[in-house]
């Protein structure tokens, strides 16, 4: 097999490297000078102090939604553990005789160490019971056990959060897309 031809033969100036090296150095120096003069050119976010506004589609920590009567919306249908590719959701179902929904999760644990934040659980949920709209990305703990988020943690996750982490369309329902229902309905 004939060897492929080199695409371009270098001129003498190019093959001596020097000219090209100087061209490159002029380029990098240009960036350096520009950045020293105007330090607001950087796109870097100075993270713990400055935070990026998260988009509405951002998949953060999971939360469980509740119905106006205070019951958790989840009916333990097991769609999310079934669809979960990381197998990080564990639900133990139980029966609530007082609740017309009959079935509810006695335990609902998500192992955040195994979770890959794919959002399939949210897609699969027929009851809009699990959401990843908290925009919480600082999910950390000192022990493995603490990285397993349980039912009450996920129900209360949104308490006392900054406004930007709340329901994006709650204050501006007109901007919401068609068919969007806010989770924070007034309790009947």
């Amino acid at each position: 097999m004939p060897l492929p031809k080199p695409q371009k033969t270098l001129s003498f100036a190019e093959s001596s490297y020097l000219v090209e090296v100087i061209k490159g150095m002029v380029l990098t120096m240009g960036h350096l000078v520009k950045n020293i003069i105007d330090q607001d050119r950087f796109r870097t976010v100075e993270y713990p102090d400055v935070r990026k506004p998260m988009t509405a589609r951002y998949r953060g920590a999971h939360r469980l939604t509740v119905r106006p009567d205070g019951h958790v919306k989840c009916v333990a249908c097991m769609c999310c553990p079934t669809v979960c590719p990381a197998k990080c959701i564990t639900i133990i179902a139980g029966e609530d005789p007082s609740d017309p929904a009959e079935k509810f999760p006695v335990e609902f644990d998500i192992d955040m160490l195994r979770c890959i934040y794919c959002g399939f659980c949210v897609e699969a949920c027929p009851k809009d019971a699990i959401r990843m709209d908290t925009k919480i990305y600082e999910i950390n703990a000192y022990t493995r056990q603490d990285m397993v988020h349980n039912k009450s943690y996920m129900i209360n996750l949104m308490d006392g959060l900054k406004p930007e982490a709340e329901d994006v369309y709650r204050h501006d329902p007109a901007a919401a897309p068609a068919g969007y229902t806010s989770d924070e309905e007034p309790v009947a």
Partner: peptide, 9 residues
């Protein structure tokens, strides 16, 4: 220097 050349702080 590396940072400024690479447009980061």
């Amino acid at each position: 220097g590396a940072a400024y050349i690479q447009d980061r702080p």
